[in-house]
Structure formats: structure tokens, C-alpha cells
């Protein structure tokens, strides 16, 4: 009988272990490594301890300077700057869309079966992403002078990499079957893209664009710190003049915009998919 065979095996030998000894050792050394890394980085950021102990007091002080908020400042300056921020974000997103579409098609190896072109497109997309929006803005302020144009181009340049990468990946995941059927009907590459690939990636595309627009509204609200227009410019001026009650109004505006944007975008994304 089966039960006899089971009891024949001594119970002691059936110890179950989640990790082998080697695994235990490697896990322990990994934890040690993380601990050492944390200690090393703490020692290298050179904390000024006097300032750190002082911080709660300073925070309270800043809070008291922010209160009461200078609400009349909103219609006077902030509103126009907010609109400018929206324009920078929206135009920048649209420009990035125009630039990202061809790059995404070149980067998707199922549409462009050419390793050289894939590499070229992917390099462009990585280059766009490797530079932060603020750095792009610094560059374009130097080129176009301070103002919203520099901000718009900076937003566009940073977004191309994001949109192009995600869209290219979406294109690569389009089922091969439907494309094969269009090919078998004698459709040109252009028709295959418009009739086969585009319907398949359309929800992903709009979802990516909405997400990027959302990010761009937040990013363009700080671009003004380097002179590229929008809310950040107003904030920079207020900080330089120690007008903390005005800084508070701007921070509150950014917060409100992000929350409202989140609600609106969630609504549209649900409708689209």
C-alpha cells in the first residue's frame, strides 16, 4: 500500500528549507552591502547639523511668512502666468507628438525591419530622455532668449523620447496576424500602418499623450525658474523678493491645477479606452 511506502521514509530527512545556505549567505551580504551604501552616502552629502536641528523652527517661520495668502496677487499676475504654463505644456506636447510619430515608427522593428534605422531612432529617443526638461530649457533660453518659446521647445524635446519610446513599444506589440492579412490583400506599407497598426495602438496613443500632457503641465510650471516662462517665472520673482505670501499662492495654484488635471485626464482616459 502507498501509506507504507510513505512511512518508510524517515521523517527527519524531509526538512523543507526556503533558502539554501548559499542563498542565505548571498542575501545576508546583499543586506550588508545596502547598509554600507547608506552609511557611505550619508557621510558624503555633508549634512550641516546645526542647520538640520534648526529646520523645524525655520519651517515654522516660513509658514508664518506665507500666512495670510496674498490672494489679490492671483488675478494680478498668477492667472496670466498659469495660462502661459498651459500654453507651454499643450503646444510642447503637440510638437512632441509630431516629432515622436515618425521616430516611433522607425524604432519599431516590426514596421521598420532595418537594424540601422531602429538604432538611429532609439538613439534619438534616448538622447531626448537623457536630458532633464530644466536642462533643455537652459539650453533653449540661451538660444531663443528667455520666455515661453524656450519653454515650449524644451518641453517638446523632453517629451519626444517619452512618447516615442512608449508608442514604439505599443507598435511592436500589435498582433502580427491582422498585419499579415492586410499584406496578403496587397496593401502598401502606408495602408498597413493606417489600417492595421493605427487602430490597434490608438487607445495606447491617446493614453500616452494625456499622461505626457499631465506631466508637462507640472514640468512647465517650474521651467520659469531658468527663465523659460510660465508660473515658475512668477515664483522665482516672488522667492527672490522674499514675498512668501505670494509664493504660497503660486504653490496652491500648482497644487489645484495638478488635482484638476488628474480628474479631467482620468475622465478622458476612461472614455477613450
Amino acid at each position: 500500500m502507498v501509506s507504507h511506502e510513505l512511512t518508510a521514509t524517515p521523517l527527519m530527512s524531509r526538512v523543507w528549507q526556503r533558502h539554501t545556505l548559499a542563498q542565505k549567505l548571498s542575501r545576508l551580504s546583499l543586506w550588508l552591502l545596502i547598509g554600507v551604501a547608506v552609511l557611505l552616502s550619508l557621510s558624503s552629502i555633508s549634512v550641516i547639523w546645526e542647520f538640520l536641528w534648526d529646520a523645524p523652527e525655520q519651517m515654522a517661520d516660513m509658514g508664518s511668512r506665507m500666512w495670510p495668502l496674498d490672494f489679490p496677487y492671483y488675478p494680478a499676475t498668477v492667472h496670466a502666468a498659469l495660462l502661459e504654463t498651459f500654453h507651454i505644456a499643450t503646444l510642447g506636447t503637440l510638437f512632441s507628438m509630431v516629432l515622436a510619430l515618425p521616430l516611433a515608427i522607425l524604432a519599431a522593428h516590426n514596421i521598420t525591419p532595418h537594424a540601422g534605422l531602429n538604432l538611429f531612432a532609439k538613439t534619438m529617443l534616448v538622447a531626448s530622455r537623457s536630458v532633464n526638461s530644466l536642462v533643455w530649457a537652459l539650453l533653449f533660453v540661451a538660444v531663443f532668449g528667455p520666455g515661453p518659446l524656450a519653454g515650449t521647445v524644451a518641453i517638446a524635446c523632453r517629451s519626444v523620447g517619452f512618447v516615442g519610446k512608449l508608442l514604439g513599444e505599443a507598435l511592436e506589440e500589435v498582433p502580427r496576424g491582422s498585419i499579415e492579412a492586410l499584406k496578403a490583400a496587397g496593401a502598401t506599407q502606408g495602408s498597413q500602418i493606417l489600417y492595421g497598426y493605427w487602430p490597434a495602438v490608438k487607445p495606447a496613443f491617446w493614453s500616452i499623450m494625456l499622461l505626457r500632457w499631465d506631466i508637462n503641465v507640472r514640468e512647465s510650471s517650474v521651467l520659469g525658474l531658468v527663465g523659460a516662462g510660465g508660473l515658475g517665472m512668477a515664483m522665482n520673482a516672488a522667492i527672490d523678493l522674499f514675498q512668501w505670501d505670494r509664493v504660497a499662492v503660486i504653490l496652491l495654484t500648482i497644487f489645484a491645477v495638478v488635482v484638476i488635471g488628474e480628474v479631467v485626464i482620468t475622465y478622458f482616459r476612461r472614455k477613450l479606452i
Binding site: P175, G177, S178
Partner: peptide, 9 residues
């Protein structure tokens, strides 16, 4: 085709 291969959307 076996899997119909229609454009789903």
C-alpha cells in the same frame, strides 16, 4: 486565416 486575422478595433 486560422485565427481570422481581422483588425479587431
Amino acid at each position: 486565416f486560422q485565427e481570422y486575422n481581422l483588425v479587431e478595433r
